[in-house]
Structures are given as structure tokens and as C-alpha cells.
Design a binder for these strands. Sequence first.
DNA 1: GGCGGTCATACAAACGATTGCACGCGACGG
DNA 2: CCGTCGCGTGCAATCGTTTGTATGACCGCC
Lengths: 331, 331
Amino acid sequence: MSSPRMTEPPAGRTRMEDIARLAGVSVSTVSRALAGSPRVTGDTRERIEAAVRETGYVVNQVAQGLRLQRSRQLLVLLPTIANPFFAEVVQGIEEAAGAAGYGVLVGSTEGDPAREAVLARQLLTGVVDGLVLLTGRLPDGLDAPARAGQVVAVSETIEGIDLPTVAIDNQAAARAAVDHLIALGHRRIAHIAGPRGNVLTAQRIAGWSVAAGRDAALVFGDFTMASGEAAMADLLARSSSPTAVFCANDEMAIGAIKAARDAGLRVPEDLSVIGFDDISFAAFTYPPLTTIRQPRRAFGAAAVAALLDGHSPPNLAYTLIIRASTAPPKG
Amino acid sequence: MSSPRMTEPPAGRTRMEDIARLAGVSVSTVSRALAGSPRVTGDTRERIEAAVRETGYVVNQVAQGLRLQRSRQLLVLLPTIANPFFAEVVQGIEEAAGAAGYGVLVGSTEGDPAREAVLARQLLTGVVDGLVLLTGRLPDGLDAPARAGQVVAVSETIEGIDLPTVAIDNQAAARAAVDHLIALGHRRIAHIAGPRGNVLTAQRIAGWSVAAGRDAALVFGDFTMASGEAAMADLLARSSSPTAVFCANDEMAIGAIKAARDAGLRVPEDLSVIGFDDISFAAFTYPPLTTIRQPRRAFGAAAVAALLDGHSPPNLAYTLIIRASTAPPKG
DNA sequence: GGCGGTCATACAAACGATTGCACGCGACGG
DNA sequence: CCGTCGCGTGCAATCGTTTGTATGACCGCC
């Protein structure tokens, strides 16, 4: 019934010494052969390679990491793996890192500082060489590695430290979203924002309010669909409800559309909705969602370039994607 | 302009030796103190703890891993991080693993065997102690660790090897989905399946065909929304189009709904659609999606239990979630 | 006061790789 | 015939921990 539990004593893996014995050489020679050194040649090299093939030997990355003080691995920290926005950023990172011979691991913090600390330790203790933060926060104790160029922020600026940061100009992008609504003729443009205290939230609010006006309606959400739905319901219950709403991400926009429909409103005829991010689902909502696209694969590539080559990343370009959830207001 | 690139030589981290010097004891004593051994007490212990606090020291996991042959980390391999179905499974794993003192890392294979191999190496060389496979495939060279109980499959059975597997009865679940449609009065029930050659695909086809009949229409997709859309368009172009369609996952169902709507059909009045998985977006589609829910957090917990305690997992329970995308056929 | 017993601490050998340096061997030239 | 050079290989130290065993201090007891 019960399988062989993950045994405390690990399987006796084949070591370099085993290869050396099989090939009749010393461990150093094996190591050099595997590293591709020109110092080991001909017959010796062949015997070693044969032994490796035969045993399926792979070098122990833990021992290698200890000796070299380098793992050739990157860790991506994100708030939650459940948000599809991060997925494509990760894919971009994987692509660029892979091309440079680096592996990529992902850690999900769920906003929990304890989990953050555990994951940050992977960098502090050399399990990984670099950290990509999509969390908007620098975990404790990472100031030194950050100054050493081992940490880069993506999508969201991190306050209190000068980190290379890969992002778009969020304020300008938010303003572009609102300008689109204004160009359609909207005047009462509400905003469903991210959580308070979040840098992205503040930047997008800033971009929205400068275009939408000071007295426009603002509700805070938490980037989930459920929060977008609740926020929209809140907005619709007010005395003068908006003709358009700008949501700080696509998931909240999807929630907002649902709330509007449940209240008997048609989108976009009665209410225009614009999102942010252009996650894959945005093109498949009903109606398809107008949104601001962030260049996620480019984010990933720029992040890796920053870590590996020390390039300091420029602001990347966003794009307004006009679909069918926005239209001129009635009347 | 350019930040300090991720320096080849790593920062000189504080080692246990530094703590020992600060506390005026030997390295062994520090090690024992940190491990909570009762052999080091009183004043000595306090001096050590003070030094640790002062320096922010954390033990080097690479060295520790080498010495102990154990990392207390699990790696989750998934085909793509972009599919939200996996997100909640990962959360369940993180929860259960965290409670047992294990960390969780995630690797995305993108269906690429090379990437699979690189990630599998993490297990082979002791970077992680256990592997959770959501990929439906056992990477090369993992037979030994698999037999040692270091590998568990989740959601999808892996062929060719007897691995502890956490899943639902996919055939029965598919059949339950189709039975729901039949109960509503449908008789022409098509299926949009996953990719050919996939075990899940076969199981769900089996469940569908036994209930829907031999001559019902079948189209293959690849679990993406775009493929669901294309498959539905294909189905609608046929001479006798179905009154209901069972999709092998929610994303294809979302694509199918879009295709139906674009063809001028109303869901569910003209076409019923049922999905599979109950991803978070399923409740927010229009109309909200009827689907089969897989117990994802339970998947995670059972996977960890299998790895850590050697429990061999039972089949878990699925649930039919009836929302608004299914209804009796017209006429 | 000497001896055995306890207790806290230190020494040193692993874990599995990499690499500077030294060494052995064959060939070649003087 | 011997010294030297070059080339391939091996020795041993190292990376930062953990842990079995040795050591030394101190105590009480006879």
C-alpha cells in the first residue's frame, strides 16, 4: 500500500570518483575532461566519456556550487503563481536565461514575509546566483546582494533602495488608458485600484487622476477578480455612477464586467471598461477587453540582461489594445 | 549607467567561522548551538545567538546540503506556468510542504525535454529532495529516484512506471460531465479533447464516448483557449453540429464559447458548454462556466504526503459545478 | 588529595567537486 | 648520453557545514 517513502538516506549516486575508477584515471582528469579542458585528449577522454555515458553520471551541482561559489541558477520571486500576468514574464526570463546557460526556478511568496525570507535565503546561501523580484518588496537581509547587482526588480519599482528595475511608465500608461476613454467622450471615469500602499497602485492612480479629474470615483481592490466585482458593485450603488471605469489590472476588470452585467448593465453600451496587463484571458472575455499591454517577454529578457550583463534597463513600451469593452457613452 | 553586474566572484558571505570567532568558541559549537543541541547552554549559547543576530548570519544551504545529503526542498515541475489550473495545486503543495519544514521551488518545462532534463538534474544532484510532476512525463534518468520514492505524479498518470499518483478518476469525471448534458436532454454531444497521445486526453475521451455514443464528434485541441476556439469553429462548420460540447479543460471551453458567440450562437440557449478543472476564471466567464472541479489543494497536500510519508494516495473526489453555460437544448 | 565521572567544548574527517602546482615520461637537441 | 622541454596526469588544498570522538575542566567522594 505504501510506497518507499522519500528516504532520509539519499540514493548512493555515482560520483566523479566512480568515473575515474572506470576510466582508470584520477578524479582531477575526469573533472577536466568534463569541463572540456584541452589538457585531456584522445584515448583518455574517450574512456572517460564512455564511462559517463554508461553510468548516466551527472555532476553533483551541490558540490560544484560549493566549490565554485556559483550555481548558474536564477530565482524568480512572485506574489502568486495564480496571476497569469507573471507567467509570460517568467517565460521571457526562462528564454533569456536559458540562452545564457542559466536555469530558472520560481518561488511563490503568497505575500507572506516568512515565505519571502525562506526564498531569499536561496540567494543568500548560494543556491541561486540571482534574484528577479516581481513582488515589489525587497526581502530582509538582501541589501548586500542587491548592491552587488544580484537582484533586479520587474514590473514594480521597489522603494527604499536603488535597484535596476524593468518596467513601463505606469503613470503614463494609466493616463493613456484614461485618455482613450476621454477621447470616446467619457467624462465620469472611475478607477478600481490595486491595494493601498502598493507602488503600482499609487502610480496608476496618479496617471488616472490627472486625466480623470480630482473628484472622480476611486475604489481600492486587491488585483483579484472577486475584488473587482465587489468594487464595481460599490461604484454602481453610488448616486452618480460612472460611464467608464479604468481597472488597475485585467482580473479586476473581468470582475467589474461581471458586476456590471449582474446589475443589468451592458458593456460597453452602458459602461466602458478598460483593464491593464493584457493577460491571455483578456482577448476571450465577453466583450473582449480593451487594455494596456505590458511587454512581458521583453520584461524577462531585460531582467536577465540586467543581472548577467549589468545593463541598466530602460523603461519599456506599453501598448493600448483596443477591443470591444470600450465605446462612446450613451447620449 | 550600468549597475554592478552580477559579479562572478560572489560576495564574501559571513560563515560559521566568523560567528565562532565573534562568540569566542569553535565552529562545532556554533553548529550545535544552531541545531538546537542541548549540549551547548547558558552563556555560550547566548553569545552565539547574539553574534548571529548581529551579523544576520544564515547557514549556507549549499554546504549544508553537501554535508547532509539533504536539502529540505521540493521541486514542482509543470508544463507551463501559464495555466492557472496548476497554480492552486502549487499552493496546496507549498502549504503542506511548508508545514513539514520543506521549501518549494517551481520549474516550468514548456514541454521542452531539454528543459525537463535540466530541471530533473536538480533532483539527481541533490539540489532538491523530491519532485512533483504535473507534466505527465518522467524525465530521463529519474527511474532510480522514482523507485526510491522521491517522485510523485499529480493530476496526470505517468505511463511505463509505477509511480504514486495523485489524481481524480478522469474517465468517471468525464462521464459525469456528459451525463449532466444528457440529463438536460442533449443527444448530440461533441468533445474538444486535449492533444493526442496525452494520457488525460485518452481518459477523458473514454469517459465521454461511453456516454455520448460512438459517432459523436471529436476534435483535438491542445488545452489552450485559441485551440478551443479553433476546434469549436471546426465543429460548427460541420453538417450536423452538436447541441452541447464537453471540453477537456476550462481554457478550451472559454475558447469554444467565444467561437460560438462569434458564429452568432447563444450559450447556453443554442449551445451548452461544459469545461473541466474549474479554474478561477470559470466563474467569471459569460455565461459562467459549468465545469468539473478537481480538488487542487488536496492534490498538493496528498502529493506532499506521498513524498514525505510514503502514503500512497487514493483517488480524490471531483465535483460537478453547475453554472450557467449549460441548459436544455432548444425544442 | 587523588580518582572516576560529567559536562561543555574543540579537533578533524567527511560530503563531492575544482584547480594551482608538481611530477613523470618521452622526445629531442647539444 | 644527459639535460631540457612539453605534455598529460595526479596530489592535495579548498569551498562551509556536520558530527564522532578526544580533550580538558571541574566536581564529589572516599
